[in-house]
Amino acid sequence: TIDEIIKALEQAVKDNKPIQVGNYTVTSADEAEKLAKKLKKEY
């Protein structure tokens, strides 16, 4: 679900690790936030 994706992003940001979500690779908190907002609009 979208919530699980967002939790995974938040965890990756805390661990400061890049995370791959679908076609996106998120490497920073800023990118994670942008991706989360984008995904919320889509779903």
Rank of each mutant, 00 (worst) to 15 (best):
K40I: 12
K34L: 12
K7I: 07
T25P: 12
N16G: 15
K34E: 14
K14D: 05
E33N: 08
A12D: 00
K14G: 05
K41L: 12
N23H: 07
A29K: 07
Q11T: 06
K38F: 11
V26N: 03
I5M: 08
K17A: 05
A12E: 00
A36R: 07
K40C: 14
K40A: 10
T27F: 11
D30Y: 10
N23V: 05
Q11P: 01
A36P: 00
Y43D: 08
N23I: 08
I6M: 07
K34D: 11
E31P: 00
T1E: 10
I2S: 03
K7M: 12
Q20C: 13
T1A: 10
E42G: 05
K41G: 13
Y43W: 12
E4G: 05
E42V: 07
Q11E: 08
K40Y: 07
I2M: 08
K34G: 07
I19P: 01
K40L: 14
Q20R: 14
K40N: 05
A12Y: 14
E10T: 09
K40F: 08
K41A: 14
A32E: 04
A32G: 03
I5Q: 02
V21H: 02
G22M: 04
A36L: 15
K17I: 13
A8R: 11
I2L: 11
E4P: 03
A36W: 07
K38S: 08
K37G: 07
D3R: 10
I19V: 13
N16I: 02
V13R: 05
I2P: 04
L35D: 01
K38Y: 13
A29E: 05
K41S: 14
E4F: 11
V13N: 03
A36H: 05
N23F: 03
I6G: 00
I6F: 06
K41E: 15
A8F: 05
T25L: 15
S28G: 14
L9I: 08
D30G: 08
K37D: 14
K40M: 12
V21S: 01
G22K: 01
I5V: 09
Q11Y: 02
N23P: 15
D30T: 08
K34A: 15
P18E: 04
A36C: 13
D30L: 11
D3H: 10
T27S: 14
E4Q: 11
A8T: 06
K34H: 10
L9P: 00
K38E: 13
L35G: 02
E10V: 07
E10K: 05
I5D: 00
V21M: 05
G22N: 07
V21K: 03
D3F: 14
E4S: 09
